[in-house]
Design a protein around this nucleic acid. Structure first.
Length: 518
RNA sequence: GGCCCCAUCGUCUAGAGGCCUAGGACACUAGCUUUUCACGCUAGUAACACGGGUUCAAAUCCCGUUGGGGUCACCA
């Protein structure tokens, strides 16, 4: 049998990082077994702006290179793939259940149902009055129908049995049907409830493996019964633990974002957010680390996020950490999914990210950095050859200092005409001792250099230091601040070459002026 | 509260009765390297929730306790 898995997001306007992990596991399982991955949109409860709310979700899949075999935009033989367009399917299934006596019209008011449930809560058993509508005669039912009394469709749970599944991750799980409350499967307006719609859809779509978050484990009991009542084969289930927020035991959630902002475990991500988003014109309030979009916008690599997602709640063996998407496809298995919930770890994500960034060539890294400089207004939309050459030089000399593409903005000073001095560093390395005097003497040496290369500058500096009987570190450290303003960055000679001879000479003058002024 | 799930270093995990003096990775600490920063290298700190069984032998199997989580909607 051909493996078919699915991910069924609601159009919420963003792709949740935890949901992405669930989707990834579904996708991997399908790919690993040469099957199909289907995207179905659970929009029964949504009304408007479906397109807007769906776009970021599809974009997240595209960005991570997780293609879907059937679903929005690509279509497929089992469509439509929006629940809002599959009404006939649910109605037909509901009619059949009603006709076969497997479901019944419940005329209880919501208040009655509520009261029943509260009364029964203590015992854990279904309430006495649950099936009072079932006792109604044909005539009584007809009369209520004629009076347009509202009703919902309830599934009649066969109570004299157990419901059992062999979960691919959790193993044997069973429930006592006698303890189950007849679930509402159709609203009074005729639209289906989740548990019903999902079963009808998964059956119709020939889904073979339902891989979803463990919060659905309890729902599975009802769903199994529904499959059976509908005469459909029950798919294999795999309930994966959910992704917790770092430093907590709770599922990671967008609602808790304000707490996360203060969490030390999240610091690395919010620091990035705070420094990068304002520079590229994005709002820190609307974009955050719970959303997959955040990682795309701050310059993570798909490989970095994928590696992180693939390793939270799953492992290949005792040592393998770095996994490409190809590796994951080749080796993924539900059997190795960890049963306990796992916390998403930003620090570890960063280490995966750094690894995959380093796998890229300098020119590939430069390409990733380009849009960030452009959005920050530090590089024109159509860079000149000189601009490109400079960027290439900067990225090359920065090496592994660029972990996420937006890190290039930390070194934005290479692309500005005016530099800002790090005051502390300036006082420590420039406005100190006889450094200003040394700079005054060294400047003409640089000015007379025929070549402006790493080697020529280094040689000149060493000879000069030797003649003055000083360590090279003195000028090296001073020149870094003088030429870039910043205490951190590439080697000085790289800095000097990148900044350029004329500018360096000018900046030495400026720095001397500043250092001697006060 | 009923039902269901889960439980190894701070974190992600390895471990399917003896390879466990519990392994790897991230983080952390120290040292080395070094012209800053970063990288790299070396070393170190650090865990089987608890209590009973079963067994010659248990992190691994069973039971219980505790703790954590999920779920009990005309949400998905």
């Amino acid at each position: 049998m051909k493996v078919r898995t699915r991910f069924a997001p609601s159009p919420t306007g963003y792709m949740h990082i935890g949901g992405m992990r669930t989707a990834l596991f579904n996708w991997l399982y399908a790919k690993k077994h040469g099957g199909q991955f289907i995207l179905r949109i659970d929009d029964t409860d949504q009304q408007r702006n479906i397109d807007d709310a769906l776009a970021p979700i599809l974009q997240a899949f595209r960005w991570l290179n997780l293609d879907w075999d059937e679903g929005p935009e690509v279509g497929g033989d089992y469509g439509p793939y929006f629940q809002s367009q599959r009404g006939d399917l649910y109605t037909a299934a509901a009619d059949r259940l009603l006709a076969e006596g497997k479901a019944y019209r419940c005329f209880d008011t919501p208040e009655e149902v509520q009261a029943d449930k509260e009364a029964a809560r203590e015992t854990g058993k279904p309430p006495e009055g649950m099936r009072r509508s079932l006792a109604l005669s044909e005539a009584e039912i007809q009369q209520k129908l004629d009076n347009s009394n509202p009703w919902v469709l309830r599934f009649k749970v066969p109570q004299d049995r157990k419901v059992e599944i062999e979960d691919e991750i959790r193993g044997h799980v069973e429930w006592d049907a006698a303890l189950m409350f007849d679930p509402n499967i159709m609203r009074s307006n005729g639209s289906p409830l989740y548990n019903f719609a999902t079963v009808v859809d998964d059956a119709q779509l020939d889904i073979t493996h339902v891989i979803r978050a463990e919060e659905h484990l309890t729902n599975t009991a009802v769903q199994v019964l529904l499959y059976e009542a509908l005469g459909e084969p029950v798919p294999a289930f795999a309930h994966i633990p959910f992704v917790m927020a770092p430093g907590t035991k709770k599922k990671i959630s967008k609602r808790e974002i304000d707490k996360y902002r203060k969490s030390p475990q999240f610091k690395i991500l919010f620091d990035l957010s705070n420094s990068v988003l304002p520079q590229i014109g994005l709002d820190e309030e609307t974009l955050n680390p719970v959303m997959v979009e955040f990682y795309e916008q701050t310059g993570f690599l798909p490989a970095g996020l994928l590696n992180s997602l693939g390793r939270t709640g799953w492992s290949f063996d005792e040592t393998t950490e770095f996994m490409s998407l190809e590796f994951l496809i080749e080796n993924f298995s539900l059997g190795r999914v960890v049963k306990a919930a796992a916390a998403f770890d930003p620090e570890k994500l960063m280490s995966y990210q750094a690894h995959w960034m380093n796998e890229l060539s300098a020119s590939e890294r430069a390409e990733r950095c380009t849009p960030f400089l452009q959005k920050a207004g530090l590089l024109s939309a159509e860079p000149s050859d000189a601009d490109r050459a400079k960027l290439a030089l900067v990225v090359e000399s920065l090496g592994d200092r660029i972990k996420v593409a937006s890190d290039i903005l930390t070194y934005g000073y290479f692309f500005k005409n005016e530099i800002e001095y790090d005051e502390k560093a300036f006082n420590k390395r420039v406005a100190k001792g006889n450094v200003p005097e040394l700079l005054i003497e060294f400047r003409p040496v640089l000015a007379e250099l025929a070549d402006w290369t790493l080697e020529s500058i280094e040689t000149a500096l060493q000879q000069f230091s030797e003649s003055k009987e000083i360590g090279t570190g003195l000028l090296i450290n001073a020149l870094r601040i003088v030429s870039t303003g910043s205490p951190a960055g590439p080697g000085v000679y790289d800095c000097l070459v990148i900044v350029g001879k004329e500018t360096v000479l000018t900046r030495i003058e400026t720095a001397i002026g500043k250092a001697t002024a006060g």
